[in-house]
């Protein structure tokens, strides 16, 4: 579980970069280069989805939680807009495949969830009270 709020992120695409920069800086001595790249990509994709598809009526920021222990980096994202419990169904490396010989058939979007799955060791939704939080775990090297 990640109960320490690392940052509140405004519902603005411009706010995601500074939050990701701060997270990467915090994890510099915790993860290796690959782990840092994976976590940053997964968190940016998750926050971008929340900003783009969230339907907050209050404009309340998105909460980014971080917990670091001897084995894992645990990141959770809590938002007023609740994720669909089946959000990650089918997401993964197979969803990223395509036929390179037919450019016109290549999907222009829809990779975010699969990138989160392939970048993290665990991706799930965790119930906290009456809310679901996106939970992502990256094992430490």
């Amino acid at each position: 579980m990640a109960e320490t709020r690392f940052r509140a992120v405004s519902r603005d695409l411009e706010a995601i970069g500074p939050a990701a920069d701060a997270l990467r800086h915090t994890l510099l001595d915790v993860l290796d280069e690959e782990g840092l790249a994976c976590v940053e990509l997964a968190v940016v994709e998750a926050l971008t989805n929340a900003v783009r598809f969230g339907t907050s009526s209050t404009g309340k920021p998105i909460d980014l939680y971080l917990e670091i222990d001897d084995r894992d980096v645990v990141i959770e994202i809590g938002d007023e807009t609740q994720p669909d419990p089946g959000l990650f169904h089918g997401a993964g490396p197979d969803r990223l495949d395509f036929d390179p010989s037919d450019r016109q058939s290549i999907a222009e979007s829809g990779r975010g969830l699969s990138l989160m799955v392939v970048s993290m060791d665990e991706v799930s939704l965790r119930r906290v009270g009456d809310h679901l939080r996106l939970r992502m775990v990256r094992h430490r090297p």
Binding site: V44, E45, T48, S109, L115
Partner: peptide
């Protein structure tokens, strides 16, 4: 850093 949204622009 680059994400899937920027990649989408390249694919377009």
């Amino acid at each position: 850093f680059m994400d899937s949204a920027a990649l989408s622009a390249l694919i377009t």
